[in-house]
């Protein structure tokens, strides 16, 4: 049981990374990752909405008729999104100023509907919570990572700190929409390559272990 809980949590961080493996939620990914801090802010907002809506949907999953489940999910997600938007505006105006633009985007973020549909409506609240947290953190690191790359290439800064000498030419194209596609493609490709290499290593170990056993036998 413990290992399966760990798995529910970890799968969102790598194996089933919503952005980089499942390639869902591309719209906000491409649109908001112009700077690392934007990606981080969007990711944190997604965690909040994803966790809240997953738990609620999991709690009421037995009452919702199958035919109207999607309108119900959307209403729940939209409610939480609006609440976080208003609460941030009221109590954290400075943070809201940075994130304000992205928060309404969360409603149409298909990662959240995807988790509601694929996981929360079939699992108990505790598991839905773990799954949502893992997925949310996955989104957060993914968006922050892509944002950091684009910020370094486009402005020479990361989280606003100058790390590339100002004399170096920065590539504005990385901040523009095409740069989002370039970066996403390269990151997804790199991730696939890493997985590929790891898979080959694993097979080699299995094979050499098998060979060792054969020799012993």
């Amino acid at each position: 049981m413990q290992t399966s809980i760990n798995r529910e949590f970890l799968k969102g961080l790598w194996d089933e990374h919503p952005i980089l493996r499942l390639l869902i939620g591309m719209c906000p990914t491409l649109a908001v990752t112009t700077a690392a801090v934007n990606g981080l802010g969007m990711g944190l907002s997604v965690i909040f909405v994803l966790v809240c809506s997953s738990v609620i949907i999991s709690l009421i999953r037995n009452f919702i008729p199958n035919q109207v489940r999607i309108p119900c999910f959307i209403m729940i997600i939209a409610t939480f999104t609006t609440i976080i938007d208003m609460v941030l505006a009221a109590y954290f105006p400075a943070l809201h100023e940075v994130l304000g633009l992205f928060i309404p985007l969360i409603v149409v973020n298909c990662i959240i509907l995807g988790r509601a549909e694929a996981f929360a409506c079939k699992n108990p609240p505790a598991r839905a919570f773990i799954d949502a947290l893992g997925m949310g953190l996955g989104v957060t690191w993914g968006l922050t990572f892509i944002g950091a790359i684009r910020e370094i290439m486009g402005m020479g800064t990361v989280f606003g700190l100058q790390i590339v000498p100002e004399t170096a030419t920065s590539w504005i194209i990385f901040l523009l929409p095409p740069g989002a596609f370039f970066t996403l493609g390269i990151v997804v490709g790199a991730m696939n390559h890493i997985n590929h290499v790891m898979e080959r290593r694993r097979q080699q170990t299995v094979r050499s272990a098998a060979a060792g056993q054969a020799v012993q036998g």
Binding site: I64, P65, V68, M75, I76, T82, I83
Partner: peptide, 21 residues
């Protein structure tokens, strides 16, 4: 049942939002 569930969810969401607003 569909109508009732949808109405309930919508009314609840609306109520919560109105209160927060």
């Amino acid at each position: 049942r569909l109508v009732i569930v949808l109405t309930l969810v919508a009314a609840l969401s609306g109520g919560i939002l109105a209160y927060t607003w």
